[in-house]
Design a protein around this nucleic acid. Structure first.
Lengths: 182, 182
DNA sequence: TATTGTTATACTCTATAACTATA
DNA sequence: TATAGTTATAGAGTATAACAATA
């Protein structure tokens, strides 16, 4: 795209009926957020970004792992022999997305793809010995990260927050496939 | 997905003592999520994905707008004349990221970049007449989307959820720049 | 016919670094 | 020197569509 900086582009719409002196958003002035403070999606996104950054400064800085990879790793650890398609369903992502995730975990030596004896199309995912040794360390770092991030909340509040979130996405996911139309 | 919230899983997943016939993760078997059910970050991500998809099926399907663009648009509407750098700070993204966002909103005819009279480097962002006409319609759609998504919660729970999220990311953001280093 | 894993491709979101034109 | 906006580039993350092998 060419235009941008200098090019003003008189947006084909007429300019708003504004006078000259507009004291609205000068430097230093507090700005307002319109309806956003009541928008759940906005706060979810902010929180998500904040926890992701916290994870990056703590767990990722010491292990190079991402939240997504660590989540997958834990599901694999908890379900030895899991097929990629099952993992994709469990994590609610497309089969094709799983391929690169598994590639990365395998490249790090944390898991292996084992050919399924019963189905030649399928692979079972398992931790390697190295993966089994690494996972507890990562989990401890993750636990510390989670505890620090959740420090502003009491244990009860933290549990309640999780419970509220679960109610939201379980209902939403169910409605999406299930039936209660869009 | 079936289980999730309250369900405790056999945490400490050391490789279960299973023999050749590995009944761990066959088709149809319930799979477990290891520590994930207690991981706030996991539930945040799931909820975020769910609400994004709901937004896509409702607001985006009828307007072509994304949650990010609509959020920016609301901040611009609430702060006429806002400079791009101020918007970037308000939304906690990099200045360079804002450029394409503003390009898109301008390309849709919703906002204009107005040269600042006092600083030739700076532009003030404002809604066009078309943007001012469109915004209320988008807000109504967004409101309906939010209400439907949040339907599993009582109004009090919804407010409390927002309050909990705010406490988390405000503390985290503050600590990140401010001082209480990790 | 349907499923598993894969590839190719694309699109979104975001960040870093460097550039320009101002201040 | 510092700031505002821009550009080029890169890296996650995810999706769709098509394909081979197998069920």
């Amino acid at each position: 795209m060419k235009r941008a900086a200098g090019t003003r582009a008189p947006a084909r719409t007429a300019a708003p009926p504004r006078a000259a002196a507009e004291p609205s958003a000068r430097a230093g002035a507090e700005l307002t957020y319109g309806l956003l403070p009541q928008v759940l999606g906005y706060h979810l996104r902010r929180t998500q970004v904040a926890i992701f950054r916290h994870f990056a400064r703590t767990v990722a800085a010491q292990t190079g792992i991402t939240p997504g990879l660590l989540g997958m790793l834990q599901v694999i650890a908890a379900n030895p022999g899991l097929a990629q398609s099952r993992l994709a369903e469990a994590m609610e992502v497309d089969r094709s997305t799983i391929v690169k995730v598994v590639d990365q975990l395998e490249a790090r030596g944390l898991i292996v793809r084992e050919p399924s004896p019963s189905d030649k199309r399928s692979y079972g995912l398992r931790l390697t010995r190295e993966g089994a040794a690494e996972l507890p360390r990562m989990q401890k770092l993750m636990q510390a990260h989670e505890d620090e991030f959740a420090a502003p909340l009491t244990p009860a509040e933290r549990q309640q927050l999780i419970a509220l979130l679960v109610r939201l996405y379980e209902r939403a996911d169910g409605a999406a496939e299930g039936g209660l139309a869009p």
